[in-house]
Design a protein around this nucleic acid. Sequence first.
RNA 1: CGGGGUAUAGCGUAGUCCGGUUAGCGCGCCUGGUUUGGGACCAGGAGGUCGCAGGUUCGAAUCCUGCUACCCCGACCA
Length: 490
Amino acid sequence: MSKGLTKRSENYSQWYNELVVKADLAENSAVRGSMVIKPYGYAIWERMQAQLDKMFKETGHMNAYFPLFIPKSFFSKEASHVDGFAKECAVVTHYRLKNTEGNNIIVDPDAKLEEELIVRPTSETIIWNTYKNWIQSYRDLPILVNQWANVVRWEMRTRLFLRTAEFLWQEGHTAHATKKEAIEETKQMINVYAEFAEKWMAMPVIIGTKSDSERFAGAEETYTIEALMQDGKALQSGTSHFLGQNFAKAFDVKYLTKENKEEFVWASSWGVSTRLMGALIMSHSDDQGLVLPPKLAPFQVVFIPIFKNDEQLAAISERINPLISELREKGITVQFDKRDSQRPGFKFAEYELKGYPIRVAVGPRDLESGQYEVARRDTLEKSFVAEAELVDYIENLLKDIQNNIFNKAKERRETTTQMVDSYDEFKKIIEEKPGFILAHWDGTEETEELIKNETKATIRCIPIEGNKEEGKCMVTGKPSKQRVLFAKAY
RNA sequence: CGGGGUAUAGCGUAGUCCGGUUAGCGCGCCUGGUUUGGGACCAGGAGGUCGCAGGUUCGAAUCCUGCUACCCCGACCA
């Protein structure tokens, strides 16, 4: 399982599939670029889901579910939106198969749909078509709805986790009476994402807005959180869009104000996807495998008994079962690996590969001494801890690991983020020491395009926080209001 | 869709140029034994339409033709 991991660690996507997903679906192009998420990987996604869902509910949202198939006619109402997605839609044209002679299954030509159905690439259109019926008065607003779902985007090129044809995500779609409120919602949700990324994934992010060319199709403003992976490439990890009245106008969603005036509603949408799992893997993993933040690890602690026979195992179990109960009462997730089919050394390596934050080894020797060997995944350090102190020690160590991997990631980002004032220096750094670059830009699409073509670096975002010093564009010398964030991106 | 590459057991591969025993090796898997505090060892064993279709030949993983899929680089993108 771990064969070749060290050598391949520079190319994360090479070993995800050995670790958490199985991607070998396709002899058939229809599932090209999809992925099977294995149980352990899915457990990580469930932890992420649970926390995000909690945060959405704490900010007043409720979950709903809308159909997978969207009639083509819905989809073509918002012009820039359809332009953005038209090239990557899977389309359902028939509803029946037919078994011909020789067991040859074909699509029944008589079963053609009158109107084709689009497999949702995102749900704005079907949701706004529905909101039209939900909204009449200012009393119906705001509508604060989220959906957990799968979507399909027929990308020309796929990358495991980062850009699969089908992916799992959450999409929030809100409707508001005023522009101000919709913008506040948009900003609130990007802050929720940033908090989740930093406090739970232990992944530092930079919040900002997208340039015109990178903005979501149909949005007036796109907020993003941008993270830096260990190889110096940036990953867009979550977005929140202020949609203005674009979808309200396209789907004719109006409400009556207190003054009995008819107005279009204002909208936001926001989402994060299983791409976050890719981000998590690429932020922290090392040559030994995954490193998971304790807050998202499916299991935070694993106990490995070291035994030669059933009597020894029974003696070990008797001593550590009360400890496990005590840990569980504190809300710590614990696994006790009693398998006799693998040797301890194999298990050590296996749990390191899977990123369990803490491993405790207990053998006859330790029962006598009353001290257990505790190993932490982030630093691979081991220490002996007295039985009486173990529960408190683990509780503190989990917090310590969570902080430590965040700080490590942040430090790494800071040492690979540079302020650059000349375009020559920019080109040199992008080539030699990839990472974030803060530089001045004249705000035009032409300059952005030029930089992209010459260096492959793109504007990841226009940061919201930090120094807002004015300056001159590093390419054209024209005035710039603030530095923007550049990087090569996934 | 353009450029490059690859396809041999569950995974990784040798063999292909120059056709010739029963297609070899490592990991993994199964059985037995010895082991068990950092990925155990010994012995035995199972597992292959050599991507698919056609052709050349006494004989094809190997040569020819066509097709398909995957990977990498671009364009596209959560």
